[in-house]
């Protein structure tokens, strides 16, 4: 254990977890492209819808996996994130922007920021904290919608599992 590194942080849940560690770098996500050509609108709308579908699928899968190991409340969080990802108002605002030649990834980030801004300004502390949830969901979709491979860890669910899993 020559390379043993000790990290200190805030516990997100009780217990001991063993698994791969991922570094999460929050901050403003920069879209790969700002604009798209006029003749690409339909293709980009499809790219956005595919991205939503994939993200919803992955989040639901993670929720299912967590539920199977008895982490009911964590599963609920991922389900709520999946619900945000497929939010019809979120989608229609993004689609409207893409119609106006904004790239889907730029549109997703902007609409996510709009909602995050509304939540962050709310008095209710719990709701204010939802701003990060929206940003997280938006960045998941954005990184899938820009045509590159998703850079986010596929196995982040593993790191969330508690003992006995």
């Amino acid at each position: 254990m020559a390379d043993c590194v000790k990290l200190y942080g805030v516990a997100a849940s009780e217990g001991i977890a063993v698994g791969p560690v991922f570094v999460h770098l929050p901050g403003k996500l920069k879209p790969e492209r700002e604009n798209i050509p006029k003749d690409a609108v339909e293709e980009e709308q499809r790219r956005f819808r595919d991205a939503v579908e994939t993200v919803v699928e992955k989040l639901s899968e993670t929720a299912e996996e967590l539920r199977e190991v008895g982490s009911e409340s964590e599963a609920g969080i991922f389900e709520a994130h999946a619900e945000m990802a497929e939010d019809p108002e979120f989608s229609s605002e993004v689609e409207e922007r893409v119609r106006n030649l904004e790239s889907p990834e730029a549109a997703v980030i902007s609409v996510g920021e709009e909602f995050a801004g509304i939540f962050a300004a709310m008095e209710d502390e719990y709701l204010a904290a939802r701003a990060d949830d929206v940003r997280d969901v938006a960045s998941r979709i954005a990184s899938r919608a820009d045509g590159r491979q998703d850079g986010r860890p596929r196995s982040s669910g593993e790191a969330l599992r508690g003992p006995g899993s």
Binding site: M84, D87, P88, E89, M122, D124, L127
Partner: peptide
């Protein structure tokens, strides 16, 4: 708020 949009619903801040 649209009842089918969790984001819009949450912006109501209904406690």
């Amino acid at each position: 708020a649209n009842a089918k949009s969790s984001l819009r619903l949450m912006t109501l801040g209904a406690k």
